[in-house]
Design a binder for these strands. Structure first.
Length: 870
RNA sequence: GGGGAAUUAGCUCAGUUGGCUAGAGCGUCUGACUGGCAGUCAGAAGGUCGCAGGUUCGAUUCCUGUAUUCUCCA
């Protein structure tokens, strides 16, 4: 049977559905609410809270195909992807989970059944590993797993492995357990006969690879490193779809499977080069590009656009790496990656609907990013070639400057240098890079102390949707210290503080305990835990405290939040349903809403939207909130599920009239509380993404008031006219006329001065023409006059003192011929006289100026000059 | 979060011990040549040198702050 990748995935999910699993859609690849993780890097990420016990689950068996992204880690460095044939940035992880339900027997038997019965993999090409035990942890070998396997597979094919390979841990603390891996030997018959596959397991052989990891979560590791049995044992398995496809399609490289081949053949057409699946630079480029376009496309579909910080920067780097390989080895000088997007979507769009729905956006964003990077490259090449002209050896510092400041890839610097018979000091470059990393790390030191537990058995309750004040006790707290400041983080048992999320800022407020008042400066969410930040502590852990939310600030923020929903609704009504939220920021001061739309929203459209939103405010729509809606209910009500958001089984539905959104944020009870909505700006954030900024409530009123105040002042200044526009136009026109007249006067004055000079030029005993005199013409105009005179006359020395109030500037001109023949330099002359007017000065040989504060010294200065030229 | 860089004519960019009347190419406009288009030649217009301070006789240039953009690191 010839397995297509879509069939492989389908069969996997069907198989586990038949074993009582609920099939879930993949969680977004971009992670929110977890400061330790930017991207989903394993199938279990989204179930972390269940393993940690922070979240209970009713569903005990789940299976899915999770999109994952790995760009760093022990086995996965971005720079290695594409060099070999089986590592990827973005990949699909097939998995099945048991949460306190079935354990090793079922997990192992089903895995074997699926691989051998359904997928019909050769049994004699399979090997399994089990945990051998560890002295330090005082753990035994995983005899259970070994026994179960020995009923299925020849004992010779069961390999015991150590903690490094076969013991899974989430972090230094927390749930962990032994695992059992299934490896497959895909080498040709002949090779298999000469070397036993068993000896190649876990040895990084490209054709003897791990395809499935079954993790048995049975222990908990405490802060001292001690293991204890978990009350609920879990199963967490992961199988890389791309590798499985290679095994089932009997290929020697993941890139030869139909996961990648459509993209590679399109690339062949575009580049007019052939992919030979070798280790040549060209073939690496094929692999890099076909891999990276997946990572970038999925990320954009999940709402993470390329940018210059955080997760967005990781995506930008991946995209640029692909462009760089295309540019260097496939001779692409124009954007090309975006042309692969339709191919990718044709292939995966049926399973991952978010791709299909946003095809235009993905292509547009990629194309624009490509163009911008090609510009960066072009600029870098100019700089590099300039440097190569002066010296073919590029110093480490220079190479680093190109890389660090101008974003020019170091391997391109090397390539171009070698094309010019030059070289790059890579040692120096690496040194600079290390220095930079040191700097960043040092500046970023945040020391986080351990949590100090107080009442760790109590579960946290959030009451902030209904109450803004509560009587609470502290569950735990800790101290954090950045470079300059010290903060405390506190977890309360009952908390009214809304944590930053859904675009809305976290609450601030106070904790009060007797006479002690502690200011809460921020509220954040880590996984499912709400944490407040304070600047000082001083609270008694044993007694309760009163927690109060800053009411005014919260009220303004939720007015803006509801206004955002109304804005979203009106945007879709007016511009069309292609408008999708791509990000939002809601604070007490203003709101920002980013959405997909491919052209500027016109001034007229903005006015219409603003008016319609204000109509909804006037309609006084009441909040209709359902905190426990099922997904089906939400769908029926027409709620928009945003791409890149993960929704639980129960969702919170927020309705105001026709506006139905799934949202965790806080809102007004009725739209009239918003009072007024005012759009303050429209702009673009990226290709295909527009941003609207707006204000509401008090802030909008303040804005209008201050505008009106300005207008009133203007009117007053215009003698309280009722027609300020007309009056202002007249003033401006008059100003323009006066300006022209002034210019004319200046010109006349200049003319006068010019003729005055010409008529009064004297000749001294050495036959040198000269003139010295004072004027009220400003020095800048004098300069013009002198240069004109210089162009028309030869052998001249002219000194003009421009006097204004108690300042004086002397300009001194010396004709070129005089400079040459008599070696009189204006700069020298000016230095000679600058003291006379109580100042200093300098300039070039033919023109110099001096400024001072003593107009009385002008005569003396001129006398000195006369002396100087004779 | 930290470091580096850029911001000069409509566009792309030059501009070093601080003073060379701020330049180039493209574009725009005018005129001439040509039967018209294209083109060639000649000429012209177009600049708060990002913004705000400071140092200086004098700042596009040096210093400080600030905005925007780019870029690297975390």
């Amino acid at each position: 049977m010839n397995w297509e990748v879509n069939e492989i995935r389908q069969k996997f999910l069907e198989f586990f559905e038949s074993k009582g699993h609920l099939i879930e859609a993949s969680a977004p690849m971009v992670v929110k609410n977890d400061p330790t993780l930017m991207f989903t890097n394993a199938g279990m990420n989204q179930f972390k809270d269940i393993f940690l016990g922070n979240r209970a689950t009713e569903v005990k068996r789940i299976s899915n195909s999770q999109k994952c992204l790995r760009v760093s880690g022990k086995h996965n460095d971005l720079e290695e992807v594409g060099v070999d044939t089986y590592h990827h940035t973005m990949f699909e992880m097939l998995g099945n989970w048991s949460f306190g339900d079935y354990f090793k027997v079922e997990a192992i038997n089903w895995a074997w059944e699926l691989l051998t019965d359904v997928y019909k993999l050769d049994q004699d090409r399979l090997y399994v590993t089990v945990f051998e035990g560890d002295k330090q942890d005082a753990t035994e070998a995983d005899f259970d797993a070994e026994n179960i396997w020995s009923n299925l597979i020849d004992k010779q094919r069961i390999i015991r492995c150590d903690k490094k390979d076969n013991f899974w841990e989430m972090g230094e603390m927390g749930p962990c357990g032994p695992c059992s891996e299934i490896h497959v030997d895909l080498r040709p018959e002949k090779e298999r006969k000469s070397i036993d596959g068993k000896t190649l397991v876990n040895k990084d052989h490209p054709l003897v690879i791990e395809i499935w990891n079954l993790v048995f979560v049975q222990f908990n590791r405490d802060s001292k490193g001690k293991l204890s049995d978990l009350p609920n044992k879990h199963v967490d398995t992961g199988m890389g779809l791309e590798r499985l496809a290679m095994a089932l399609q009997k290929k020697e490289s993941n890139y030869d499977t139909d996961v990648f081949s459509p993209m590679i053949s399109t690339l062949e057409k575009l580049s007019k080069k052939q992919f030979k699946s070798s280790n040549s630079k060209e073939d690496i480029a094929f692999r890099v590009i076909s891999d990276h376009v997946r990572a970038v496309s999925f990320s954009i579909a999940d709402g993470q656009l390329p940018s210059n910080t955080g997760a967005g920067y990781v995506i930008r780097r991946i995209l640029r790496r692909a462009v760089r390989y295309g540019y260097s080895f496939l001779e692409f000088n124009q954007p090309f990656m975006h042309e692969l997007v339709p191919v990718l979507i044709h292939q995966l769009g049926d399973h991952f609907v978010e791709l299909k729905a946003q095809e235009t956006l993905i292509s547009t964003v990629i194309k624009e990013e490509e163009e911008s990077f090609l510009r960066t490259l072009a600029k870098g090449i100019v700089k590099l070639e300039k440097a190569l002209k002066s010296d073919t050896k590029i110093e480490g510092k220079q190479a680093f400057e190109l890389y660090d400041t101008f974003g020019f890839p170091i391997d391109l610097t090397e390539l171009i240098a070698s094309e010019h018979n030059g070289s790059v000091d890579m040692v120096g470059f690496t040194k600079e890079l290390e220095l930079q990393k040191m700097r960043s790390r040092n500046s970023n030191i945040v020391t986080t102390d351990d949590w100090i537990e107080n009442n760790s058995n109590i579960a946290q309750v959030f009451i902030g949707y209904d109450d803004l004040i509560s009587k609470s006790t502290i569950i735990k707290y800790r101290e954090i210290e950045t470079k300059s400041k010290k903060f405390y983080q506190i977890v309360l048992d009952i908390t009214p503080f809304y944590p930053q999320g859904g675009g809305q800022v976290g609450d601030t407020g106070f904790l009060k305990q007797g006479k002690v008042v502690v200011k809460v400066i921020d509220t954040k969410k880590e996984n499912d835990l709400i944490i407040i930040t304070t600047k000082d502590f001083g609270l008694n852990l044993n007694s309760s405290l009163i927690a109060t939310v800053d009411y005014q600030r919260r009220k303004l923020a939720q007015a803006n939040h509801t206004a955002t929903h109304l804005l979203h609704l009106e945007l879709r009504k007016l511009l069309g349903t292609h408008v999708q939220q791509k990000g939002s920021y809601v604070s007490a001061d203003y709101l920002r809403f980013d959405f997909s739309h491919f052209q500027k929203v016109s001034e007229e459209q903005l006015r219409t939207i603003e008016k319609n939103v204000n109509d909804l405010i006037f309609d006084n729509l009441l909040l209709n909130e359902n905190r426990n809606a099922s997904k089906e209910q939400a769908n029926e009500a027409g709620a928009m599920m945003l791409f890149g958001e993960k929704y639980g089984d129960k969702v919170r539905m927020i309705c105001f009239g026709d506006s139905v959104e799934l949202c965790g944020g806080t809102h007004v009870n009725q739209t009239s509380e918003i009072r007024l909505f005012k759009v303050t700006g429209e702009s673009s954030v990226a290709a295909g993404i527009r941003r609207i900024e707006a204000i509401s409530s008090n802030k909008a009123l303040e804005y209008l008031n201050s505008e009106q105040k300005d207008l009133n002042i203007v009117k007053t200044m215009l003698q309280n006219t009722k027609q300020p526009i007309k009056a202002l136009e007249e003033v401006l026109a008059k100003n323009a006329t006066l300006g022209e007249q002034m210019l004319a006067v200046d010109k006349d004055k200049a003319k006068e001065l010019k003729s005055l000079i010409q008529e009064n030029i004297e000749t001294n005993s050495t036959q040198l023409s000269f003139f010295f005199g004072s004027t009220t013409v400003p020095a800048k105009n004098v300069k013009d006059i002198l240069f004109e005179l210089k162009a028309r006359n030869e052998d001249l020395v002219i000194g003009i003192a421009s006097v204004s109030e108690d300042k004086v500037t002397i300009s001194l001109l010396v004709s070129d011929s005089v400079v040459k023949s008599r070696s009189l330099k204006a700069g020298d002359g000016i230095k000679l006289i600058s003291k006379a007017i109580n100042g200093g000065g300098g300039g070039q040989p033919f023109f110099a100026t001096a400024g001072g504060k003593n107009p009385k010294g002008i005569e003396e200065a001129f006398l000195k000059l006369k002396d100087w030229i004779s």
